[in-house]
Design a protein around this nucleic acid. Structure first.
Lengths: 219, 219
DNA sequence: TAATAAATGTGATTTTGTCACTGAAAAATC
DNA sequence: GATTTTTCAGTGACAAAATCACATTTATTA
């Protein structure tokens, strides 16, 4: 087990005792998850706290009808902190995670993190801070959903992917964007065509090329 | 200052030292807020943690256009815990609170709560638990917004008010319900008329009488 | 009582969501 | 390499909901 992983993921790492660190290192398991692997969180069930060693995962909620809406993404080194909240006090929300690339996932078992949380104020502070941050993110998303129109959510989704990819060529289907923007695939098709005829993007099967990010940002 | 207030609001009260309790009691201020008084939280500004001594308040987000959407309500003895998160780690969300009745509000100053939080694990645990609970609430609301239709959200709002009031006669305007259900006033008017012709409610100016709560619950 | 404000009602229009398809491109299989 | 299957995109018709622009009614206040 590579210690750097924990050192980078957890700002409280240095403040732990040698015993505590060993406890974590010895109990953390490593899993290789293929692209499209799904994990479910909720109903009191929670394997533990996940750290994304490498890869990218999407966290989302699922509708009774089967559709889903992206809440946020986890990238290299990110910690799935809602699992912590979930296991610490039975936060009863149902979330799903899906790997968008092959991922290396490290899992700290429920009991181990729980013990650590009880022993260390620094761990409590960290957990609190991370959860507050996620709370802020979700509130921001909520605002987008209730106060913005579809076009601006789609534009936002495109720009977010641009930031993740670090380039203007996005390998995305209309379906992918629909999930991020919380709308239907057909709607995305219509609006993207509009964007294209306005010269903001160029569309190809499975790929969207951003032409004018500036204008896209103004929507 | 009445000690029972704190004892009831804070499960950690008994675990505090005499010094800590005195610190809180001596620094908490009491305010009488008239119905319709508004408080704003956000932008890093946060007076402290509020306890509702008596009365009822509505917490909501405001759109750039001026409309607002209810997130939750605070009743007698409730603690406005998001203020805590806000001040502890600069959770950057913008919230407003409006008194729905005349209220008695007790405010524990930022610094006092912060000190207490740093000193006591029990306070950390409590804060964490309350924030997780609110997180769950908001996620539930999010689900309602993105996966339910307007009619069921309106029905839900009516039933929630029934639970608060403890009776079938609700003194609510269509505007009030629109804010709770996150829709426009006209839409509420239309759907309520539908409810009325289906025999679920009876409408009078400024008042809605629930006739068939069971059917309302099934929507 | 008249004037004002608050609450409700309604039609017209636009936006968004849903349904039911069709066709095109890529991938998998033969 | 040709064919089947799957995935992705496009489209028309319709329904639900939001928005706009008013009219009407009921309560409050001057």
């Amino acid at each position: 087990m590579n210690n750097d992983l924990f050192k980078n993921a957890f700002p409280f790492w240095e403040s732990l005792t040698e015993t505590q660190r060993t406890e974590i290192v010895n109990n953390t398991t490593r899993n290789l998850c293929e692209k499209k692997t799904r994990l479910h969180f909720g109903g009191g069930e929670c394997a533990g706290v996940q750290i994304i060693g490498s890869g990218r995962a999407r966290v989302f909620i699922t509708s009774p009808g089967g559709g889903d809406i992206t809440l946020f993404r986890l990238l290299d080194g990110d910690v799935s902190i809602l699992s912590a909240a979930c296991m610490l006090n039975g936060m009863d929300i149902e979330l799903d995670m899906e790997m968008e690339t092959d991922c290396e996932i490290y899992t700290i078992p429920k009991k181990v993190y729980r013990k650590l949380y009880d022993e260390s104020g620094a761990v409590k502070d960290y957990t609190m801070e991370m959860i507050s941050e996620k709370f802020s993110d979700i509130m921001w998303l909520f605002n987008q959903f209730v106060f913005s129109n579809v076009a601006s959510r789609i534009a936002g989704a495109l720009l977010e992917h641009r930031a993740i990819e670090g380039g203007d060529e996005l390998k995305l289907t209309h379906e992918d964007i629909a999930k991020d923007a919380g709308t239907a695939r057909e709607v995305v098709t219509r609006i993207l065509k509009q964007f294209q005829s306005d010269g903001l993007v160029k569309l190809t099967r499975g790929k969207i090329t951003i032409i004018d990010a500036k204008k896209l940002g103004k929507i």
